[in-house]
Write a protein that binds this DNA or RNA. Sequence first.
RNA 1: GUAGGUAUAGCUCAGUUGGUUAGAGCGCUAGUUUGUGGCACUAGAGGCCGUCGGUUCAAUUCCGACUAUCUACCCCA
Length: 436
Amino acid sequence: MSKNITTPSILPGFMELLPADQLLFNDLLDKIRKTYEKFGFIPLDTPMIEKSEILLAKSGGDTEKQIYRFQKGDNDLSLRFDLTVPLARYVAQHFGELTFPFRRYHIGKVFRGERPQRGRFREFYQCDIDIIGSETLSIINEAEILSVIHETFLALGFQNFTIRINNRKILNGFYEGLGIVDKGGVLRVLDKLDKIGVDAIKKELSEMAIACDVIDKIMDFVAITGDKQDILNTLLAIDSDSEMFKLGVQELQEVCGYIDAFGVPSENYAIDLSIARGLDYYTGTIYETVLNDYPSIGSVCSGGRYDALAESYTKQKLPGVGISIGLTRLFYQLKEAGIIKASKATPTDILIIPMQGAMPYALQVASKLRGQDIPTEVYLNEGKLKKQFGYADKLGIPYCIVIGEEEMQTGLLTMKNMQTGTQEKVNIDSIGALMK
RNA sequence: GUAGGUAUAGCUCAGUUGGUUAGAGCGCUAGUUUGUGGCACUAGAGGCCGUCGGUUCAAUUCCGACUAUCUACCCCA
């Protein structure tokens, strides 16, 4: 009978969820979206496929290697690898039709042809917000972005997290002042500080042919800690002849002032001079968020300020600031760490079980319940009660309503709480209240 | 791109020092009678032991190649 069965499988690095997990995932996604909208960010959706010339306009060799690129007819196409480049294109293309500052959020899948590994995906969701200015963009936006991150993680159910901030001008200015040529390389090494420790960092830096006394200065700089005022004071006291450094310190001070005005509690953010962010289009404030109870997860949200977002697509000056949550990875890690757990495998809150001849009545009841915004499902197939309750049980449906002769005559429905196992006769109008 | 690990039931994995009918747990299906799930018991379905080749009287087991997959590095969300 069976022939030519193709083994069902998907490509590695692509996440696909079972029902209970998908509901859990969507719940996180909804919370993020609602928070973004609460701050007035405008939804945006752009094509997953862009012309390759657009995506590659600015990229270095690394992104080019990771990009899914293909020919279709005469067109050279690519799957987007982030949401920022499409945003740049979009803003440049529709510049005349948009109102600035342009605040948009974008939740969508992006693609990177990397070698998959734990928590690393080739297709994943990014949840971005960005604020794009025309010509100028006040630094207060950088503080607001941080407050949006704060609200978002609260909405996701976290209290104990730290949004670390730093400023690229400080880093660039400081390292320039030290005469370091490969600033990017140094930043990349320092970015791993949390992961591999001070000694390993020193070793890697010396392998980069950086002089010992310079390494010491770098380590001293990175080791600057304390609360934000301590760090600011220390930075202000550093006698650097780099104008960029001074400007960065000033910006950082300003951002911190605004953050307080946004009402972000000081335990949820900190200045951290060791964070760097790999991407080199950042020009000012940079962000990185960690869950303090689960440091091994690493950064769950990151971003920063960039001054020349769309320079490849327009002569307009479009400075911006934005962040991104890698939701696929975040979900995967929260799940693996047991921080979040699926309960139901269906949105259904009430399963109606009609006995012989009760189907039309059951359908009416279902319709009424749905009118009260109660997700309701009628068991439509033949089967013993045992099987129908089993169905509710397996899907984690919290309530069942049995409708038979008796219920139809009295108008009182038999409602069973699947968790406690208790059962009572209820009037249809009181069901909503009973479910609380 | 570099380096390791793994490949046996739908899933997680045992196992055969090379020998006839390949196992468990979970899951699945059915039953333990008639308007009640979870628990328990009973029964059942489900495997060319990743593919190709080598050694051997005999390979799921040993060897090799290939493929797939996982983990780490690089880089990132």
